[in-house]
């Protein structure tokens, strides 16, 4: 099976790049006789925030676990921080952070003890550029747990626990951070605080972040680039804006004329409206133009992948996407 003819996915070899933190080419994963990933290709530069979107079972977790070095791949070239994650040593491990979905581990530990303890493992990997680990009290304040430093972990609320997970993930000042559905169970305030934290990490520390989420709104807010994974392949790769603009061909125009409702989809919504108004001018009422949102783009792409239809909006999008370049 070849997945390489997908336009918009760069398959030509390019020279090694110092700033390339993630370089994944034609990654394949097969469990028994079932292919879970059919040739996933993407890259991430230093300081970039990537959101990996996709329906359940699309292969998001498998992809992320391969990159974390927690799972062996079946085929493909993968470089994470310059090393093959299947052979990453502890020095390599020290440069990345993994935010795990904790459950009840270390319940008897005090928050501060746990963070300081895990931080100790990173001290030998401190460099002139990156001082490891993070000062614990500063970190606790950053994630909003300063007031809970002396509490036992099992006394924390769900949201507080997730923030502790994030703190554990970044205590070693990672250059690359993996976040698997980081805000599940957050209330809106915690979610906003978390988003600010992610921005701060990416902007100030130049941390590269790969996150998976089901929340499109969150992806739009956080990510520089969105990858949509469906059916084991990347079906879209671009900024949130690009993605929604690429299905802009499907902008929806609604209006009423003489008491009748009209709905029309047009690639060039502005041109269509211009013509419409020229033709009927005052008779057009309640004009409404709805541009495709990221959600529409996502739904269109995923639907097409899952139903096996490889025509329609997605193809249009690719065509437009490649002509953008």
């Amino acid at each position: 099976m070849t997945a390489v003819e997908l336009p918009g996915v760069d398959t030509t070899p390019h020279p090694p790049d110092d700033h390339l933190v993630l370089d994944v080419r034609d990654l394949r994963m097969r469990y028994g006789s079932v292919d879970v990933l059919h040739g996933v290709t993407f890259t991430a530069r230093r300081g970039e925030v990537l959101a990996l979107l996709g329906p359940n079972g699309a292969g998001k977790t498998t992809t992320i676990e391969i990159l974390e070095g927690f799972r062996m791949r079946s085929a493909g070239e993968v470089s994470v921080l310059g090393s093959d994650p299947g052979r990453g040593d502890e020095r390599w491990r020290a440069r990345m952070g993994v935010v795990l979905q904790s459950w009840r581990d270390h319940g008897k530990w005090r928050v501060r003890d746990l963070l300081a303890h895990l931080g100790d493992f990173y001290a030998p990997y401190s460099t002139a550029r990156i001082r490891r680990p993070c000062p614990v009290d500063e970190l606790l304040d950053t994630v909003g747990l300063g007031a809970h430093a002396g509490k036992r972990v099992h006394q924390l609320s769900g949201g507080q626990r997730r923030r502790l997970d994030v703190a554990v993930g970044i205590v070693g000042r990672p250059e690359l951070l993996f976040l698997d559905e980081p805000t599940v169970g957050f209330d809106p305030a915690a979610r906003r605080e978390f988003h600010e934290l992610v921005h701060r990490l990416a902007d100030l520390d130049e941390t590269t972040i790969l996150l998976t989420t089901h929340d499109l709104d969150e992806a739009e807010k956080l990510a520089d680039r969105i990858l949509i994974l469906a059916g084991g392949r990347i079906v879209a790769n671009g900024s949130p804006d690009e993605l929604s603009r690429r299905v802009a061909g499907d902008a929806e125009i609604r209006w009423t004329r003489d008491g009748k409702r009209f709905v029309h989809s047009a690639a060039d919504a502005t041109g269509f409206v211009r013509d419409l108004l020229r033709q009927y001018s005052d008779a057009v009422q309640e004009l409404e133009i709805r541009r495709a949102s990221l959600e529409d783009a996502y739904m269109a792409l995923v639907y097409e992948e899952e139903s096996g239809v490889r025509a329609g909006a997605a193809t249009r999008m690719w065509r437009q996407g490649s002509s953008d370049r």
Binding site: E90, R93, S102
Partner: peptide, 20 residues
């Protein structure tokens, strides 16, 4: 038990964490 609750995975995600 600690494999089930994720303590060991945390150790694995930490450099030399399993030894510790």
């Amino acid at each position: 038990i600690e494999r089930e609750d994720g303590t060991l995975l945390r150790a694995k995600a930490t450099p030399n964490g399993m030894l510790g």
